[in-house]
């Protein structure tokens, strides 16, 4: 490719070093917490005294189960809602030419540029003061879906950009109804993208504190429990909670990664 001279080699090595430092910076705290969740002496854990006590304490915590269930409900609800919106938006935007394309794109992505705390308080105000609704899981799902849709939209658009819409036309020419075309041609081809969008929405909402908190009031979720615990000084149960959630999320990301790879593969084969 390029003739590699010593100066460039040095620069690349320097950059690689920076990348490694970044990974250390990003992952050391996460893995350190996992380590702490298994040891008795959390302040200075050398040498470690291993224990599972924190996990047992966590499981017996009052509202832990309810928080977990609520977080899952919010995550799945937001995931479904935002995937639905994002898929419709992405297909509409990519399939049909429109001179509003740029404007619509900006509109769908706008929630990315608004701070979470603002989305949280504004939907709280809207629900309570205007609609007169109390905070509940549904309003939290809807509020989370505003920005989760933007993320899901990004993921889906990035992949659908490579989809050949002429396939749909072919199906239509051969007499398929629009619904049948979508079910039998479009969907099988784009499902990895949709799946990716769902997972992104799910993870974001599952972990969200600022938006959920303002919409839920006293209803616990895992992040609000974590927040409450953190406020009253760190308790080792929090390490256990963080480790479980982190492990769970990394697992999802690994699955997602392979799905993405599969998704790309599928779309690539079709390109030929």
């Amino acid at each position: 490719m390029n003739a590699v001279n010593p100066g460039r080699k040095l620069a690349l090595a320097g950059q690689a070093l920076l990348l490694i430092l970044l990974y250390l910076f990003l992952y050391f705290p996460i893995f350190y917490i996992m380590y702490l969740s298994f040891v008795e002496n959390t302040v200075w854990p050398f040498p470690p005294e291993y224990t599972l006590e924190h996990y047992i304490n966590l499981l017996t915590l009052d509202n832990f189960h309810q928080g977990l269930v609520n977080s899952l409900i919010i995550g799945i609800g937001t995931g479904l809602l935002s995937t639905l919106f994002a898929t419709m938006a992405a297909i509409g935007l990519l399939k049909y030419q429109s001179r509003w394309r740029g404007l619509l794109m900006i509109f769908y992505l706008a929630p990315l540029f608004v701070a979470h705390i603002l989305i949280g308080i504004s939907s709280l105000i809207f629900n309570k003061a205007i609609l007169g609704l109390p905070g509940n899981l549904l309003s939290a799902i809807i509020a989370n879906a505003t920005y989760a849709t933007a993320f899901a939209f990004l993921v889906i658009v990035a992949q659908l950009a490579r989809y050949d819409w002429r396939l749909d036309d072919v199906a239509m020419v051969f007499g398929a109804t629009p619904a049948k075309t979508f079910r039998e041609v479009t969907l099988p081809n784009i499902w990895p993208a949709i799946f990716g969008g769902f997972f992104v929405g799910f993870i974001l909402a599952f972990n969200n504190l600022e938006i959920s908190f303002y919409n839920l009031g006293a209803i616990p979720t895992l992040p609000t429990i974590a927040w409450g615990t953190l406020r009253h000084g760190i308790k080792p149960e929090l390490y256990a909670l963080a480790s479980i959630v982190n492990a769970f999320i990394f697992l999802i990301l690994i699955i997602l990664y392979f799905l993405l790879k599969m998704g790309f593969l599928k779309l690539d084969i079709k390109d030929r």
Binding site: P29, I203, N207, E210, I234, N246
Partner: peptide, 16 residues
């Protein structure tokens, strides 16, 4: 990837 583990848990980790 760390972005997806949630703000509150990451702050917890940082404090340690």
């Amino acid at each position: 990837a760390p972005f997806f583990t949630g703000i509150i848990l990451r702050v917890t980790a940082l404090q340690q």
